[in-house]
Design a protein around this nucleic acid. Structure first.
Lengths: 233, 233
DNA sequence: TAGCTTTGATGCTATAAAACATACAGACCG
DNA sequence: CGGTCTGTATGTTTTATAGCATCAAAGCTA
């Protein structure tokens, strides 16, 4: 269920939002250039090759960003949680999107005009510094992923993905259930493996009592063990 | 053989250098914060985990940046040519280096103090904009690589690496010989495969008349065919 | 509620690539 | 000069994982 109460004000005034770095004047101007849109589950936000038409911030929901590879096989590059940015690489690098974005659940997205971002916000050095820092972090992540996805074996890759989901979305109130309910196919596409292998390996983890599975609900029973499996490759 | 004639002035006044974007005053100040150092072939510039101690620009030579993965197996993340930046992601993101940099041949590297970059250069919005654009491009490249290195088969990965070397370093005067003389091991580490498979596949390409090999000299005989092998995966 | 579609589970087979084993050529060195 | 080392080459074996087929369960829709 979406929190429809979230308005523009809340986004701008939330210290975790990138717009919090703007000064008062810029924030006011921002209001003229912002709009909110609602997306259903499994809806495309943009497609690989599209020209970016705004600066997107996820307000509520979850979004996957993926690239299509050999034979249309998709690889999930990144997942976004509320207040995360979507597709900003293409906008700021003045390129087309090199991946597609699809909602994993009903989502609320705020769009800011490219013009405001490029000609106003980026002139604010706090803002541009934050963008640089985000890009650096993401590049580091991407490089690390390249290595683990190519070098680790199936068990290591799956363990890493589960840890990644935990770090990004955290747990439900019980402290063990991942707050993300992906299809086996999405888990596979995140971990660079076939769906059957994702299913098979999840079952193995469950039989080893590292995790417990109940449909799409995954509970992490032994985080240390999972960490070890991931490290080991 | 290094071009030892290259001095600080040439770097600052070359339109292809990022420092060209600085204004006159900043350029003059830059001179106080810059130094040149010479590296022998196969020398480390920094190691994974090191704290960055300056903003590095390759003046002459070639450098590989790689990460160590499972069991010390290395994956080359990036290669640099003259006027390219090295290790700037870690400096600007205020993190430690997440890869190591090693010269592939004798090289000349210019170091600019972190202080000047962070407190002066980045305040220049042309400079910071250029940095953002470089980071965006590199992130796009990294994401694309993640997908191709995980999904393409050996032949496709090797073909892509050869094209990558061509695009980065170009050809010798004959118009076919790659201007990069890597060991088979480096080619393997660039293409995510074992050294034996790199050797084997290069031989196959040679027997198919796609390339010609003479020691470390590689001549591309049929660029279209190579492109097709790469695309096909 | 029945029928259809999608998702998840599991076994079997095929295969790409790693791992291993030699072998050889050239470089370097005491 | 022979010995060791390093890089390259090539054949053989092993293994991880993709690919395929089948079936069960769940979810959707008419």
């Amino acid at each position: 269920m979406l929190n429809s109460e979230l308005g523009v004000r809340d986004i701008v005034e939330n210290p975790k939002s990138i717009f919090y770095l703007l000064n008062q004047e810029e924030k006011e101007e921002l209001q003229q250039h912002i709009s909110l849109s609602r997306y259903k589950k499994n809806e495309f936000i943009f497609k690989e090759g599209d020209k970016p038409n705004g600066f997107l911030l996820l307000v509520d929901g979850k979004v996957k960003i993926f690239k299509e590879g050999v034979g249309g096989r998709e690889q999930i590059i990144r997942m976004t949680k509320p207040l995360g940015l979507i597709g900003y690489r293409a906008l700021l690098g003045e390129e087309t999107h090199n991946g597609s974005a699809v909602t994993l659940e009903e989502s609320l997205i705020c769009t800011v005009s490219s013009d405001f971002i490029l000609n106003r916000a980026l002139k604010n050095s706090d803002f541009s510094h934050k963008i640089i820092s985000k890009l650096c972090k993401e590049l580091g992540f991407s490089n690390a992923r390249t290595v683990t996805l190519t070098q680790k074996h199936i068990r290591g890759r799956l363990a890493e993905s589960l840890i990644l989901l935990k770090d990004k979305y955290g747990f439900e109130h019980d402290g063990t259930t991942l707050r993300a309910f992906l299809s086996r196919e999405d888990i596979a596409n995140l971990s660079n493996m076939t769906t059957s292998n994702a299913i098979r390996t999840l079952s193995t983890f469950a039989s080893e009592k590292v995790i417990a599975i109940d449909g799409r609900k995954i509970r992490i029973l032994d985080a240390n063990r999972l960490e070890r499996i991931s490290k080991l490759g």
